[in-house]
């Protein structure tokens, strides 16, 4: 069993706060008209990214989604480059060419967020194959939503990973909605984890609002993958606290009502209380975490604001490695 040490618990807490504050600040900036494009906020789902990524090193890889900021922060990406990307600046992780839905950092094991639902899942299988063929001990984690589990890419990717026993972990962030479509009308299974049976791999449902539970479940799956025993499908039951994208009130399809009970289980508040009880982190120290994160956030925003826009000539670079 993976034991949650104090150090890991504190890392997870701080990571969740880092994700939350990044999202809150991005939303403010977006609503103030400073950021182009659109945003999908990860608020409410922080326990999943933090609980899983607590097991990963920079050499472990992830694939992410349109709702990817949380995975990026948990994987160690810096605010400067992330904000700069949202601001479409040259200093962003993708030079302002990708934006919110397409952040990547190969050095930190982020193969990429993805604008195509389900698109990352087979890529994760392929990356796991690459690691295996090169004899590495690293793993690949693929994050995706319940909606994505209805795409062919989900089935094909996981089937490949299972039949080749690849070092991959598939993490479904089941927030009960695919854009405006409630789970019950887009899939007849209640637990996405049930789908693991179809591929002959373990499937586990876990409370995605409880980072300790996510940490433990992910730890087992990742250890299994590292040992060469093949992939696991984890389903973390969670909830996005906001609409599908920033600006969607969620009222048209019942999200606004559903979210009320989930907010009572805010992972940051709940885990904060848990840490307090454990005497690992007092209220005052939680405030210090917040202040530290906020200062870092503002440095990131200032960096982005002060960064140059891309040059027009940048539009035509990076298309090919060579011609």
């Amino acid at each position: 069993m993976t034991e949650l040490t104090k150090a890991k618990a504190l890392w997870i807490y701080e990571t969740m706060v880092r994700i939350r504050r990044f999202e809150e600040r991005s939303i403010e900036l977006f609503q103030a008209g400073e950021l182009p494009g659109f945003l999908h906020a990860y608020i409410g789902e922080e326990a999943v990214a933090a609980g899983v990524c607590a097991h990963l090193t920079p050499k472990d890889q992830i694939t992410s989604t349109h709702r990817g900021h949380g995975h990026m922060v948990a994987k160690g990406l810096r605010y400067e480059g992330m904000f700069a990307e949202l601001y479409a600046r040259r200093t962003g992780y993708c030079k302002g060419k990708g934006g919110s839905m397409h952040i990547a950092d190969q050095d930190l094991g982020v193969l990429g967020a993805n604008g195509i639902v389900g698109g990352g899942i087979p890529i994760a299988a392929g990356a796991a194959l690459g690691i295996k063929l090169k004899g590495g001990k690293h793993v690949v984690v693929s994050f995706f939503g319940d909606g994505a589990s209805n795409e062919g890419a989900f089935h094909e990717g996981i089937n490949l990973a299972s039949v080749w026993k690849l070092p991959a972990v598939f993490v479904c962030e089941n927030n009960g909605f695919a854009e405006s479509t409630p789970r019950a009308t887009h899939q007849a299974v209640r637990d996405v984890a049930d789908r693991a049976k179809a591929y002959g791999i373990p499937g586990v449902s876990v409370d995605g609002m409880d980072p300790a539970a996510v940490y433990e479940t992910a730890g087992e799956a990742i250890a299994r993958a590292r040992k060469g025993e093949g992939p696991t499908l984890i389903e973390a039951k969670t909830m996005r606290f906001l609409g599908h994208y920033v600006g969607d009130p969620g009222t048209a399809y019942g999200h606004d009502k559903e979210v009320v009970k989930w907010k009572k289980r805010d992972p940051i508040l709940a885990f904060g209380a848990f840490l307090e009880k454990k005497k690992w982190l007092a209220a005052k120290e939680r405030e210090e975490v917040r202040a530290r994160v906020n200062a870092e956030i503002e440095r990131g925003v200032e960096f982005a604001r002060g960064s140059p826009e891309p040059d027009l000539s940048d539009a035509l670079t990076d298309i090919y490695a060579s011609l």
């Binding site: 182009p36 494009g37 479409a88 600046r89 993708c94 302002g96 060419k97 990708g98 934006g99 397409h102 826009e309 891309p310 027009l312 940048d314 539009a315 035509l316 298309i319």
Partner: peptide, 16 residues
């Protein structure tokens, strides 16, 4: 359009 994927940055997008 210029022969590139569509860039995110508004400045580049309107350029291509």
């Amino acid at each position: 359009a210029k022969e590139t994927p569509v860039p995110f940055a508004p400045k580049l997008e309107s350029h291509v």
